[in-house]
């Protein structure tokens, strides 16, 4: 590449656009469907129902401990597809880049996307790059969309929780949210925190293989708004109450320390590599064992249950034996001032 920064011409559709695609995107994403460079990727149809999801990524900063916007964009859409019980297979990636963005950074991000896709076993088969004048976007925005197929008999939805079901969380809370917050605004406390960004489709595959028919009812990845908001969404959609146990919730020590320092409740901080599963009580141990076998699920545990009391509402037994409501997040969490 002659340039070391992105110029408007890289998005013009002309020679520089072509060069960007040929030299950066194609070698990284490396698959036949993309390298044909037709106007759309052509995919053989699969049997059954298709899941289709899209997500845009505007994270700031772009690079943070444990990852960057690239792997986040791939894992985010892979996970959204996996949460409907589908096997994600193909993604598209569209980038809006601000004029002046360093090509070296773009290469790093694209390499992370490619690595994340390989790790998740999905292919990036369609893409687009636009360049906007300086100031019209903040460095780089990435949209990914994706499709996956749902095996016969798999029925997963936020509306399917029933009283008596167990609530499983696949690991610690707040790793991603606190990592980003720590990087932002130059806070950068010297804390051992890193994002948990990871693709969960292989974990879901293990769970589906282990669970008896109908045993796995709800899957959700607690991203923005955290575990608290995801549980509230499930309680509302299924019209059940949910009761969780504070002592069962895990937060890594440095993350917990940062939360305390900044006045952030880890229940509301974002995760990018965790899932909540609502499981029939009789299947709970089997599903939990399957999660724990996954490299990303070692810390999984049952954190509570769905109940018939107070439908639509989440409550928590606190560690000291009290009880409180766990509401949905309103507004952003703001650091305390005193």
């Amino acid at each position: 590449m002659k340039h070391d920064t992105i110029v408007l011409d890289h998005g013009s559709g002309g020679l520089l656009s072509h060069e960007l695609t040929e030299k950066i995107m194609l070698p990284a994403f490396d698959n036949d469907m993309l390298s044909r460079l037709d106007d759309s990727a052509v995919i053989e149809s699969q049997k059954g129902r298709m899941a289709f999801s899209t997500d845009s990524f505007v994270v700031d900063p772009l690079f943070f401990p444990g990852g960057n916007i690239g792997d986040l964009a791939v894992n985010g859409t892979v996970n959204d597809i996996a949460m409907s019980g589908a096997v994600p297979l193909y993604l598209s990636a569209a980038m809006i880049i601000e004029e002046g963005f360093a090509i070296r950074d773009l290469e790093t991000i694209v390499a992370s996307m490619a690595a994340a896709a390989r790790c998740a076993g999905v292919k990036i088969v369609a893409g687009d790059t636009k360049v906007v004048p300086r100031g019209a976007a903040d460095k780089i925005f990435i949209n990914t969309s994706g499709v996956g197929w749902i095996a016969q008999g798999v029925e997963i939805s936020a509306a399917l929780a029933r009283a008596g079901d167990c609530v499983i969380l696949s690991g610690t809370m707040a790793d991603h949210g606190m990592t980003i917050l720590n990087q932002r605004e130059g806070l950068a406390f010297d804390a051992d925190v890193k994002t948990d960004s990871a693709a969960l489709n292989k974990m879901v595959a293990r769970m589906l293989a282990a669970a008896p028919a109908g045993g796995l009812r709800v899957l959700r990845d607690p991203t923005r708004g955290g575990v608290a908001t995801a549980l509230n969404e499930i309680a509302l959609a299924s019209n059940v109450g949910i009761c969780i146990n504070e002592s069962a919730l895990l937060v890594r020590k440095p993350v917990a320390g940062l939360c305390e320092l900044l006045g952030i409740d880890p229940l509301y901080a974002a995760n990018e590599g965790k899932l909540i599963a609502i499981v029939d009580k009789d299947s709970a141990d089997t599903v939990l064992a399957a999660i724990k076998q996954d490299p990303l699920g070692g810390d999984a545990c049952i954190i509570g249950e769905a109940i018939s009391d107070h439908p639509g509402r989440v409550v928590m037994e606190t560690a000291i034996g009290g009880r409180r409501i766990v509401d949905m997040l309103t507004g952003g969490q703001l650091p305390r001032i005193c």
Partner: peptide, 9 residues
């Protein structure tokens, strides 16, 4: 007090 459920105790 609210967060830890102290009032219930």
């Amino acid at each position: 007090a609210f967060r830890h459920g102290i009032r219930n105790l």
